[in-house]
Measured scan of single mutants.
Amino acid sequence: MAAGGDHGSPDSYRSPLASRYASPEMCFVFSDRYKFRTWRQLWLWLAEAEQTLGLPITDEQIQEMKSNLENIDFKMAAEEEKRLRHDVMAHVHTFGHCCPKAAGIIHLGATSCYVGDNTDLIILRNALDLLLPKLARVISRLADFAKERASLPTLGFTHFQPAQLTTVGKRCCLWIQDLCMDLQNLKRVRDDLRFRGVKGTTGTQASFLQLFEGDDHKVEQLDKMVTEKAGFKRAFIITGQTYTRKVDIEVLSVLASLGASVHKICTDIRLLANLKEMEEPFEKQQIGSSAMPYKRNPMRSERCCSLARHLMTLVMDPLQTASVQWFERTLDDSANRRICLAEAFLTADTILNTLQNISEGLVVYPKVIERRIRQELPFMATENIIMAMVKAGGSRQDCHEKIRVLSQQAASVVKQEGGDNDLIERIQVDAYFSPIHSQLDHLLDPSSFTGRASQQVQRFLEEEVYPLLKPYESVMKVKAELCL
């Protein structure tokens, strides 16, 4: 049975990233139509530049190519590739079939990587351009969430054990800070992308030097003109047959890092959902379990974690691919890159769409948070109580021993009897502590235990987050809708 299948058929496997999760716009960027249309555009740009620099290419040939950029006979191309065992030459023939007058000058002087690699770089750039505003929107939604809850005390956790208090907004800023680093890295790697350009079979530009009869300047002009037509500021000066596969490492490393950030955020949300302090959106008709109707599973956060793990592992592909590119190139890269580049971007696209949807509907339960604080705060307040007693004339050592005994009794009630923490009640009825009984409410005010959390939130948002989001103001209103 021949390899390949009808990918629109229910009898043929289709990647869930495309069929179930990723956005239509990201799927289109990695589609065959987008790819092969870009090949034709690159052939047109090459012909236009070659004509401008004096090669015998007519206006009629150029116009014929322009008129057929979208006229792609995919069936013919597939048949040609089956016959020739070469995808680029299959599309040269297919393009030439609908451009008979231009057929002889299509791909003039070029090698397969002229269309293959340059198209990949265009796709990487455009895919990054799709991700950047999506990530900015996630940051914006979380920034709104953090600002609104900047002063809401909550129990902090280290080692997932109760620690000092923080605020809900401050905790959210930990998430935002990681995503801001990801946004900066995505922008950097996007701006650092260079075009492969017009380089020939081993990167020496020998074929173009021959076409222009040894004119170095025209060869350099050709490279520059096509690079500018493709919208790049610069091209690699040095290439082998391909652009260095280190570029793929750079791009997928940034995406993998984004995956790590999203995994951490969504894990926190899942843990908070278990504590009943916070939940992701839950639709009115949504079913959490087929057997347990009360369940409210954090399905979206779980999906993000599941896909983020996949995204983090994909960076190993370009690392290994770059390491086995012998001399000017081997074909070890080809099949692998067809999979890992598309999957990385479709996965990143999915987790950003999902995280935006989550961040637009996060639900906080202040009463649950308050109750958990009441359970733990008495123990945390013991040092403040000791200091207040010393100020009232008591002995630190005597007070410490009193607190120690009462704390152990209260802990026994919590752990052995399943009761509430009654340390404060014990202190309130103990005559030894009568000098500070009137101060206990103040000493137990949760806001006095959150330090500068709310001020940190305000400063972080104003100095770091809002300036970073400013270039994306025009796209901030787009909502994230999930079908599944």
Rank of each mutant, 00 (worst) to 15 (best):
S289P: 06
A348R: 00
V247D: 14
T450I: 14
M26Y: 02
K295R: 00
A78C: 13
A136V: 15
R371Q: 02
Q51A: 05
E464D: 15
A49T: 05
G203M: 00
D87C: 06
I238N: 11
L165M: 00
Q456M: 11
A260K: 04
L377S: 03
D248V: 03
I122R: 02
K82M: 09
P100N: 12
P162K: 00
F208E: 01
M476F: 15
D268V: 01
L377I: 15
L130Q: 06
T347H: 15
Q205P: 02
R190F: 06
I238T: 03
C399I: 09
A2C: 13
L174A: 08
L209S: 12
T242Q: 12
K187L: 13
M65W: 02
A342V: 01
D430R: 06
V363E: 01
T204F: 01
I265H: 12
T350M: 05
E481S: 15
K479M: 12
L155D: 09
A103P: 05
R33E: 07
T204R: 00
P366R: 10
M299F: 10
N274L: 09
M76F: 09
T227F: 15
V251D: 03
I339D: 06
K264R: 11
A335C: 12
L346A: 10
D87A: 03
V247P: 03
K170T: 01
E280M: 00
Y21Q: 10
E463G: 10
S412P: 05
Q210K: 14
D117L: 02
D349H: 07
I237W: 08
V138R: 04
A163W: 01
L142W: 12
E80V: 05
I237P: 10
G288C: 03
M389Y: 04
R404Q: 12
V429T: 11
W45G: 12
S23N: 10
S151E: 07
G203K: 02
S447N: 15
V29R: 05
L444S: 07
M278F: 10
V465P: 01
D248L: 07
L346S: 15
R338K: 04
K233H: 01
A388I: 07
V92A: 11
G5R: 13
T313K: 03
L183E: 05
F30M: 14
Q356E: 13
L17T: 07
R190C: 11
K101G: 09
S474A: 13
P293M: 01
T119I: 13
G259I: 01
I287D: 00
L352K: 02
V262T: 15
E80D: 09
A260S: 10
K367N: 15
H310E: 00
L484N: 08
A110Y: 00
T350C: 11
D32C: 07
E463W: 14
N384V: 09
R40W: 08
A322C: 06
A335I: 01
T330D: 00
D178T: 09
L444W: 13
C98H: 08
A3L: 13
L341N: 02
N353C: 12
S112G: 11
E464R: 07
R149I: 07
P318R: 00
L311E: 02
A103S: 13
L255E: 01
L362G: 04
H7S: 14
N68H: 06
R303E: 01
S19I: 08
R404W: 08
I424W: 12
Q325R: 04
I369L: 11
T119R: 00
G361Q: 04
I105D: 08
V251K: 02
R171N: 01
L108K: 03
L152W: 08
V315R: 04
H7Q: 12
S207G: 13
T166K: 04
K187W: 08
R337P: 00
G393A: 08
L314M: 12
G418R: 07
I385S: 08
W175V: 05
F28A: 12
V363L: 13
Y21H: 13
T267Q: 13
E79T: 09
L186D: 06
K101H: 03
S140A: 06
L314F: 13
D420K: 02
R426S: 11
R37E: 07
R245L: 01
S407F: 01
E64W: 08
T354D: 08
H217K: 09
R83N: 12
E48P: 00
D32V: 08
R374I: 00
N353F: 01
G156F: 02
T38L: 07
K264Q: 01
C180D: 01
I385F: 05
P162W: 03
A410T: 03
E279M: 02
Q409C: 10
S9R: 12
M316Q: 13
R125V: 08
P16V: 15
N336L: 13
L355V: 09
D73W: 07
L482A: 14
M316D: 08
Q286F: 00
F74E: 10
F345I: 09
R194C: 12
Q41W: 13
K35V: 11
L108I: 13
A291P: 01
Q428G: 15
I122C: 08
M26F: 10
L406C: 07
Q205E: 03
Y365V: 11
D182N: 05
Q164D: 01
E228R: 11
H442A: 14
L468V: 14
C266D: 00
F345V: 12
D11T: 04
L319W: 04
R188A: 09
I358R: 01
K402G: 03
A47P: 07
R14T: 13
K477H: 15
Y243W: 09
H159P: 02
L482N: 08
R300H: 14
L341E: 09
S447E: 12
V390A: 12
V198A: 13
R190K: 09
D317V: 10
I238H: 15
G214M: 04
L209Q: 11
Q356M: 02
A256P: 07
E370Y: 13
R188E: 06
M76I: 05
N185C: 10
R149M: 14
P162S: 08
R14Y: 13
F95T: 07
K170Y: 04
A392F: 04
L319E: 03
Q408P: 04
N353S: 09
H86C: 00
A47L: 03
D216H: 15
K101M: 13
F212L: 12
L272F: 10
E464P: 14
S306C: 07
E280T: 02
V457N: 03
F433Y: 12
N71M: 05
G393R: 06
Q408E: 14
S112W: 00
Y472T: 04
Q456H: 09
V364P: 12
T313Q: 09
V189Y: 14
T154V: 08
A90W: 08
S9K: 11
Y13T: 10
D430H: 15
I287C: 13
A49W: 15
T166P: 12
R85F: 02
F160G: 08
S334A: 06
Y466N: 14
Y365R: 10
Q325Y: 01
T382M: 13
V219W: 08
H310N: 08
W39C: 15
L468S: 13
I351F: 11
E473H: 14
S290A: 05
K367H: 10
E64S: 07
V92W: 00
H400I: 08
F160T: 12
Q439M: 09
L469D: 04
R188M: 09
D87M: 04
H86T: 00
G361N: 09
Q408F: 12
A308C: 12
A2T: 13
L341H: 11
C304Y: 01
G231V: 04
L461R: 04
K367G: 08
A256W: 00
V465D: 01
H310L: 11
D73C: 13
R234E: 15
R125E: 08
L440R: 01
A273F: 15
G156V: 02
A47N: 03
T58P: 06
L319I: 06
D349V: 05
M316S: 10
Q241I: 00
L341F: 09
T202L: 06
S23A: 13
R374P: 07
E401T: 08
N68C: 10
F145N: 13
D59Y: 12
G200S: 09
L179E: 01
C266N: 04
E481H: 14
L331Y: 13
K218T: 12
L69V: 03
S151G: 09
G393M: 00
